[in-house]
Design a protein around this nucleic acid. Structure first.
Lengths: 230, 230
DNA sequence: ACAATGATTGAATGAGCATTCAGTGAAGAT
DNA sequence: ATCTTCACTGAATGCTCATTCAATCATTGT
């Protein structure tokens, strides 16, 4: 993971080769392989993803996966970790950004789920491919749980402050957080299965409308006045 | 599918052999194989489900799958169709039952998602295993879409009547139906990934609380007065 | 220039698996 | 009692794929 992040940095700011080339190449290759894996899972599913296809898509030779990762299994783990931390980086960047109002911070977490890089068709396919296997591979579940838990805690913290601030009502932060996260997972599934019928923007608005039902004062203004779903 | 349904009937009312034994045996075997497939997918995932394991679990010989179904692929299709129609039967039974109030009918659809037979750990594992593959296998998506669409139409019909009946408000049936279905899919995922932390009953209540936010008059009474989430 | 290091290649290996099919046996039909 | 029909069996087949590894190549240090 750490190595891979270094590679992303490297790629983004134009290959500033400070470390020895060999070490850096290593992380670049790993990233290449992970991205090819994402492409393959999206195109062929987990079942249809073979190392031959992955390396072909990456433009590398067959033996490299077992050189850079111990096994196909490890490559899959790192791929899941990659999309997971990509999302974590996204929402953490969101809540650290300019506007310090709690309501906006919470919206930033919500919005992170609908960022084009995070919920592209490819990434959704990868998430659900791993969900499907997670029931039996505890390592996948552990990776997903880690990132879910961290975000859930942050959500609850923000909602708790919102609730005490504005309309205190009987709003239960846990209920709000769990409900919205479940709703978003379901919308993700819709976008995956029916990409023609469900867009990112529309789904984001759908979440906001639910949020407005829960916190009219805080979020009522974030939804369009007219109420057509489509 | 039809053959399989006949077999269920046969099993349930004690093997009333009206047809020739051979034909009936055939459908019994198919059902056996489908149930073994469900067990295997739940235990080993789609990737780890082999025909050797399926037939072993079913207590039958290896060659039978290719005899009763054309291929492993077809067996998988029929398995998905089986859990799909099991759910359809469940909610259709629910809305046909005694109480003819629309609100109760709608609740019956919601509740069908949380029936022990429908959202057992095994069945959830099967659903998400297929969702994971659905992005690439259009046949899976078609099967899921069929059943989703039918239920969605029925839900909207009921909600529309509810909305006109009671608090007409600006409630949009499509929004309500899509939101609740997405929420439920997300809760299913929670139950699959974290069975220790999410129960059927608790999840059902979570849906009702959201429903009560949308239709206080119709569904406010269906949630417990105290508001602890756990 | 040369050696040393270590990344890269891809043919070879062998395991695992879906599918086939020749043979078996049990249940009806005559 | 014998024949016919099929469901059923499981060893054999052949293919796909992850993994290995000997050989090659590029880079760095001296």
């Amino acid at each position: 993971m750490e190595i891979v992040k270094a590679a992303i940095g490297g790629l983004e700011n134009g290959l500033t080769a400070q470390k020895t080339r060999r070490t850096e190449d290593k992380s670049v290759r790993q990233l290449q392989l992970i991205e090819a894996t994402i492409d393959c899972i999206a195109k062929y599913g987990i079942v249809g993803t073979t190392l031959a296809k992955v390396t072909e898509v990456a433009g590398l030779s067959l033996g490299l996966v077992n050189f850079h990762f111990a096994s196909k299994e490890r490559l899959f783990e790192e791929t899941l970790r990659f999309v997971a931390s990509e999302h974590r980086d996204q929402w953490q960047k969101g809540i650290r950004a300019k506007v310090p109002r709690d309501a906006d911070r919470f919206l930033a977490i919500i919005d992170s789920f609908f960022h084009p890089r995070i919920c592209s068709r490819k990434k959704l396919a990868v998430w659900f491919a791993f969900f499907g296997e997670a029931a039996n591979r505890s390592i996948y579940r552990a990776i997903v749980e880690d990132i879910d838990e961290e975000r859930h805690q942050e959500s609850m913290r923000l909602i708790r402050r919102l609730a005490s601030e504005g309309e205190a009502a009987g709003i239960d932060p846990k209920f709000v957080s769990l409900t919205l996260e479940a709703l978003i997972d379901g919308l993700w599934l819709n976008m995956l299965l029916y990409p023609e019928d469900f867009s990112r923007e529309q789904s984001k608005m759908q979440v906001r409308r639910v949020l407005a039902l829960m916190f009219p004062c805080h979020f009522g203004h974030t939804i369009p006045k007219t109420d057509g779903t489509t």
